[in-house]
Amino acid sequence: MQYITAQNVSLVLFFIGLYGVLLKRNIIKTIISVNVMDFGAILFLITVNYVPDSIPPIGSADIQRMADPLPQALMITAIVIGISVTAVSLTIFISLFRKHGTADWENIIRRIQKR
């Protein structure tokens, strides 16, 4: 059990995402996999300086016991960015799918070259 730490989990997530990006030809799966990678990285950063029993960095209660606020502040930005970029790529995918009728990277290339 001692290997199941947040950091190891986040690295495993990152590599699961990498597997999906490298080996899946479906565009939707690609977008999902890239997101899994992104969230792996985000989880890694959130837990980077985590000390057990620390309290949320709100107010001025007990500064010694507070968790490191910087990664949390940064990662909420990263999550928002991740969502917007995913939204953009899904939007592009929808119009691509309407024009080509396929969700497969290889088929799309073949169709573009055939023109």
């Binding site: 565009i27 992104d38 990285a41 980077v48 990263a78 790529s89 024009k99 573009i112």
Partner: peptide
């Protein structure tokens, strides 16, 4: 549109590496 999608996904992929690097 294909070029745009390729650009977005590829860069998102690359920037996931960047973010993990920032974490380390």
């Amino acid at each position: 549109i294909y070029d745009g999608l390729l650009y977005v996904t590829l860069n998102l992929f690359g920037m996931a590496f960047f973010l993990l690097g920032v974490g380390f």
